[in-house]
Nucleic acid binder design. Structure first.
Lengths: 145, 145
DNA sequence: GTAAATGCAAAGAATTTGCTAGCCC
DNA sequence: GGGCTAGCAAATTCTTTGCATTTAC
């Protein structure tokens, strides 16, 4: 594991923000410092830095990866309809991690928690259309079973 | 929202398995029943069925979407190094969902919880190489800060 | 009859990979 | 000097979309 200007810059960018940036965002930010930086290098380093425990990654809507330098660990809510994500203020429960580690013998370091459902807009839209999800489900089941 | 042979088949496939299949897996299974089925249709329906609350989706390693027909709701562990996923037996805590719903006013229906760290194999591999993640991190920080 | 769903294929987006050259230790 | 890294670009992989046709209600 060797140092490089690029790797340091990428790590600094991720650690230096409170948002949870995508690879592309990191790329554009880091290029301000290192204009010749290539996107492939960003991907390679993000992956390596995650393996090393320097940062964390999680997939947002559409399978796009986001990265988090632990600056502000928290959870998210994601809409099942439009994919919108928002931050949720719930205390992070590390006890769970330890419990799972004990039961499984795995090296559990943290967890990713994402709440799901419908956002305000989609919820309003759904009930306007008469498809709240719950009703629709019963309807379909009634027909099938 | 109209019924179709294809949609019924896709839903049945996802509900009929305990694994958390990918779109491609669902496609191949459903084609056994409906040979002319197209992949686009599978994607379209998986998305719609998730919006309706019929099933759930989450991104696995590499940003590949997996689907879950609630047959057995549980959590996962995912290795930060090799991406391997395994099921974790921890009781699902719905109280959290209600709490978040109250605080935010969102229509929270469930949550996705994923533990992260290193799997047995990668953990052994990492310590053999002298890079457990923890050590490496200190090393890098020592140099940077 | 009409709107919604399918099939097909092409387009898109994100990420990975192969290869050569350069830089770190 | 040897090997890890970067750059660049091509390749992969997964997913979405446009459009003509078919199907459900």
């Amino acid at each position: 594991m060797r140092r490089s200007r690029q790797r340091d810059a990428i790590l600094a960018v991720v650690k230096g923000t409170d948002c949870h940036p995508t690879a592309d965002w990191v790329y554009r930010e880091a290029r301000k410092q290192i204009p010749g930086l290539s996107l492939g290098t960003v991907y390679r380093n993000l992956r390596v830095l995650c393996e090393l425990g320097e940062m964390r990654s999680y997939e947002g809507s559409g399978g796009v990866a986001h990265y988090d330098g632990y600056a502000a660990t928290h959870h998210h809510f994601r809409c099942d309809r439009c994919g919108e994500m928002q931050d949720i203020e719930v205390p992070v429960d590390c006890v769970m991690d330890r419990k799972v580690a004990e039961c499984t013998g795995l090296d559990v370091r943290y967890h990713v928690l994402e709440f799901r459902g419908l956002c305000h807009e989609c919820c309003a839209g759904a009930s306007r259309e008469g498809t709240t999800g719950e009703n629709e489900r019963d309807e379909m089941r009634g027909g099938t079973r």
